[in-house]
């Protein structure tokens, strides 16, 4: 039995408006009914089981929830799935090849020991992936790479190896 006080404080499912969303995630068309207030990060993790997209802060500071929306890096915690309706979303799961061969950016992170716990890594990689996809020239000086990574926090490694990994990735992808 729900007490009257609880009833007033907690919304009934029926009060939570929903909408029909249709978006492409890692090349696959997804059609679902979702709550209008569901964050894209939660949609990816809880509805689709794509738990490679991590959630650290849910207010845009840590960057570990970064995915691509229509090819551009974006915070999935600062995007409602309703806003992503009709878009093409790419998550970290799409980077490695079917046979498990790492994407050059992942390979560079591995070679450079640019992760410890790996919590921040998917966001770092998706941010860099999005930036590398832009035609804009890259500034691969230490300062330039640090600016590129300024929206991604790592609490383990320090940034020296991550900066090296980004430079290595640029080499592997012929961007230097």
């Amino acid at each position: 039995m729900t007490s009257r006080r609880l009833k007033r404080r907690f919304a009934e499912t029926a009060e939570d408006p929903t909408l029909q969303v249709s978006l492409t995630v890692n090349g696959e068309l997804i059609e679902r009914t979702a709550s209008v207030r569901m964050l894209l990060s939660d949609f990816l993790r809880h509805e689709l089981g794509l738990t490679g997209t991590h959630v650290g802060c849910e207010h845009g500071i840590c960057g570990c929830c970064t995915v691509l929306i229509d090819g551009k890096a974006a915070r999935s915690c600062l995007t409602l799935v309703a806003q992503a309706d009709g878009t093409e979303v790419t998550t970290i799961e799409a980077l490695a090849a079917e046979d498990g061969k790492l994407h050059p950016i992942q390979q560079a992170f591995k070679e450079s020991h640019a992760l410890q716990c790996g919590y921040c890594t998917p966001g770092m990689i998706m941010n860099i992936f999005g930036r590398f996809n832009e035609p804009e020239p890259l500034d691969l000086s230490d300062q330039g790479i640090r600016t590129m990574l300024s929206g991604n926090l790592c609490r383990c490694t320090g940034y020296v190896n991550i900066v090296a990994a980004v430079r290595r990735a640029a080499q592997l992808l012929g961007r230097v």
Partner: peptide, 9 residues
């Protein structure tokens, strides 16, 4: 202004 992923949105 902020970081590129935020400027993208």
């Amino acid at each position: 202004v902020a970081h590129i992923p935020i400027r993208n949105r």
